[in-house]
Structures are given as structure tokens and as C-alpha cells.
Design a protein around this nucleic acid. Structure first.
Lengths: 112, 112
DNA sequence: CTGTTATTTCGATAATCGTTGAATTATGGA
DNA sequence: TCCATAATTCAACGATTATCGAAATAACAG
């Protein structure tokens, strides 16, 4: 539960949210730190700091590959966060913001 | 878009997340500040600070009623946040964590 | 007006945050 | 070995945060 707060805090910062979005777009494979640095124009030490936050929050994984360190988004954790928000912060009320595609047509109310 | 960061930051704090959840449970009607203070055992000035954060983030509304001030969760904003996360932080990948109730049965793929 | 209840505002404080420059570690190539 | 590349760690900094006690404001009752 305080898990959620940590994850929220990790995403509640512009650069960090950008980093995470970048990694999401990079796919399961992930991307080396340097590529993220180049893509977002962030100095490597600042980036290291943010990566660490995301990692501690369980939102990304890190693995070494040659001299690069590859970071990858942890989709499961993101799903868990969204699930938490959906269940705890909209309770009872219609909330699920309609899946992006294939949403059901509104059903006509059946008269008594 | 930086809207999302503000909303995330507003929820990225234990007491504040509790406050928001309390208001969500209170329903559209909302609840007076004092009731939240009692329910969560928080000093009123600290609570004021947190209410303000949530209000600025667009996550709650405030209206005066007699001597009380009634705060209410803004479900639409929460939906918008969840929508943002669903679309921007899981892009392409299966992500929507299955609506709590009434979820559609999985459709059998139609063979060519 | 006076007093009471409900809440906010103000000033101060300790803690945490995001960024920076400089130094450091780790890997691989010549 | 020596050098270059990729990334992290460290110390410092100004800025923001969450909390507190005390004072102020708002609405109502007598």
C-alpha cells in the first residue's frame, strides 16, 4: 500500500516521468542509459539519480551488457499501480476510463 | 501533460493519499474538513495544507456550507490521470488491469 | 457585542529533493 | 599495459516539502 506512494513519487517528477515513458516506448528489451541520456538530453549523473529512484520504486530493472547498463520498464508494476488507483481511488463509482479501443457501445436502459 | 505530474505529486504522499481515499469513499457529496480530520486523526492545519495541494492539483473541490468546508473528490480528474497512465506508460503493451466488475468475457479469436 | 466552533494563514524548522562538477568504477580495445 | 567509453558515486548547493504552534478569519448562537 505504501508501495503505491513510492511508485507515485517516482513518477511525480517531470524528468523521471519522461525517462519512464521513454523506457515504455523502448519495449521489454529496454534501452542503455546512454541512449536515454541522448534521447532526453539529460546529464548522465542526473539520470543515474533518477534511474535509481525508478529502480527502488520497482518500476524499472537494470542489467549490465558490455559497458552499457540497460534499463527496462517493469510493466507489471505499472499495471499494479493502475490497478491500485482504479480500485482505491474510484471505489464504487464508475471509474475505469474506458479501454482505449474496443469499448462497448452504451446500452439503452430497459424500461420497466 | 505536466498536469499529470502535479496530480501524481499530489497523491505521492501518505497522508494525502489517505485523505483522497477518504473523500472517494465519502462519495460525490464529499465530507467536511473536520470529519476528515477526525477520521484520519490529523491536525487541522496540516490537513488544510494537504487539502490545498489536492485542490490545486484539481483532484478535489471545496465549498463552504455553514461553518464547515466540504471537500469532495473529483472523480473525472482521477479518471483522466488513470487514462494518462494507461495510455502513456504502457503504450502498445497489454496493460489495462481488467475492470473490477462486469469485465467482458475473453473473445475467441476468429480463425481465418 | 461576546463567545464558540470550524477552518485557514503565518512563521519557523528539520528533512528531503533535484542538479551540478569532480572524482571513481567497470568494461573492452589497441 | 594504457586509453577511451559508459555509467556511478560523492559532496555541495539551493529549492521544496511536511509539520508544528500560534494567531487570524468566518459563521453562527446567545
Amino acid at each position: 500500500m505504501s508501495d503505491a506512494v513510492v511508485a507515485l513519487a517516482a513518477l511525480a517528477q517531470n524528468n523521471r516521468l519522461d525517462v519512464f515513458r521513454f523506457l515504455v516506448q523502448a519495449g521489454r528489451e529496454g534501452a542503455p542509459a546512454g541512449m536515454v541520456a541522448a534521447g532526453l538530453d539529460l546529464p548522465p549523473n542526473t539520470l543515474s539519480f533518477h534511474f535509481d529512484r525508478l529502480r527502488v520504486a520497482g518500476l524499472v530493472t537494470a542489467r549490465r551488457e558490455g559497458r552499457s547498463i540497460i534499463y527496462a520498464a517493469k510493466y507489471e508494476q505499472m499495471n499494479a499501480l493502475i490497478a491500485f488507483l482504479t480500485q482505491n481511488c474510484c471505489q464504487g463509482v464508475q471509474c475505469t476510463p474506458a479501454p482505449v479501443e474496443g469499448q462497448a457501445r452504451k446500452r439503452r436502459k430497459i424500461p420497466a
